[in-house]
Simulated scan of single mutants.
Amino acid sequence: MGSFKGHIVPGTLFLVVGLWHIWCSLVRYASNPKTFRVRVWNPVPGFGGRVKYLELYVIAVGAFFDLCIEFLYSTHLKIFVIGVLNPSHMNDFEHSGMLLMFFIFGIIALLSEKTSFLPLPEGALCFIVSAAFTAEYLLFYFHSTTHKGLEGYYHLILVLLIVLCITSTIAGAIMPTSFPADLCSGIAITLQGLWFYQTAFTLYGPMMPDGCRLKGNEISCGSTGHEVYGELLANFQLFVQVFGVLVGVTGAYIYAEQKFGRPTLVSSSAPEGS
């Protein structure tokens, strides 16, 4: 069982990183399609280069902050019971493992970019972040907390979005010049962040479907019909999010093309003399 804050915090991280990835991908492609390369992270321009690695710091610090919440605060420091991991907080330990993978990616990427100790190509970083997404997938697929009913349906959609994140990042490593793979990665991360938000507001907030309620640590629906209605509502919410993101991406690309696009050079040749 999760919580409102437990979904909002990681959702915010995924949403911020995903939106930034989409924008940078569009700008780089609009600026020069021929030299486009997949990037697993994007530098922040300006300020004399002082915030160049801001995205990596957001990933590393954000994952570490959320890790501390899950591993220390949520467990109330009752980590071990009779010499073994506290079985009452296995859910928190699993979340911690997932966040640890993203923290490791952030640290490795910073070491690779800022030092000479661990120089890695962009493809290797793509595989590392895909490993972090894979750990997240395994967490939600083999969760110690059994997600059933409406809660299980929302987490099933989340798992599918995570699979899209894994696939797009691996595709970026295999096809390093593919604009669709790079853009799809940003869209998948953004949708994952939005779905964390949607899950928080629906299952633990004010958007609970009619006939369903949060009781104790379980979400129960009054009848099968109410549960089916909740699942159909989830489908509609996902459609709205996908449609909204695609419309936003289209608008952002039009703007990026107008602002950063290179003018087409039309070469004219003189007519041949007779």
Rank of each mutant, 00 (worst) to 15 (best):
A234R: 01
E113Y: 13
S144Y: 10
Q241E: 13
G97Y: 06
W41M: 08
H147Y: 11
Y29F: 15
L99F: 11
V266C: 04
L67I: 03
G49I: 13
I166M: 00
L72G: 04
W41E: 10
Y197C: 02
H7Q: 03
W23P: 03
K148V: 14
C184R: 10
T199C: 01
V17P: 04
H143V: 04
V266M: 12
F47T: 11
G123Q: 11
V228H: 07
V27Q: 12
T224S: 15
C184H: 03
G106I: 08
S223K: 02
R262G: 05
Y53G: 10
M175I: 03
I187H: 00
L246Q: 06
Y53A: 15
F36G: 09
T115P: 05
T177Q: 14
N217E: 13
L100I: 08
F142N: 14
R50W: 08
F80W: 13
D210A: 15
F239A: 13
F201Y: 13
K52I: 05
I79R: 02
R39H: 15
V84Y: 08
F71M: 12
T224F: 12
K34F: 14
K78E: 15
G261E: 08
V159S: 04
T75H: 06
H7N: 05
V228T: 15
E55N: 03
C126E: 11
E113P: 02
C184L: 15
W23G: 12
G225I: 04
G6F: 05
M90W: 01
W41L: 01
F127N: 05
Y253P: 06
Y153N: 02
K259P: 03
L194E: 13
P119H: 08
V242H: 04
T202W: 00
F93P: 01
I174P: 04
H226K: 13
V163W: 00
V245K: 00
E257S: 12
A135T: 11
W23C: 11
N32V: 10
F93H: 05
D210T: 14
V240W: 01
T202P: 02
A256T: 09
F36Q: 05
F127G: 01
F102C: 00
Q258F: 14
K114I: 06
L56Y: 12
A124I: 07
V44E: 05
I219H: 03
Y53V: 10
H89L: 04
F65A: 15
P206A: 15
V40T: 14
S144I: 07
C68H: 07
V9P: 06
F142A: 07
T169P: 02
N91V: 12
V240R: 07
I108E: 04
V266R: 14
C24P: 02
T199S: 08
L164N: 10
L203P: 06
Q237F: 06
I104M: 13
Q192W: 01
R37P: 08
S223W: 01
P176H: 11
A181H: 06
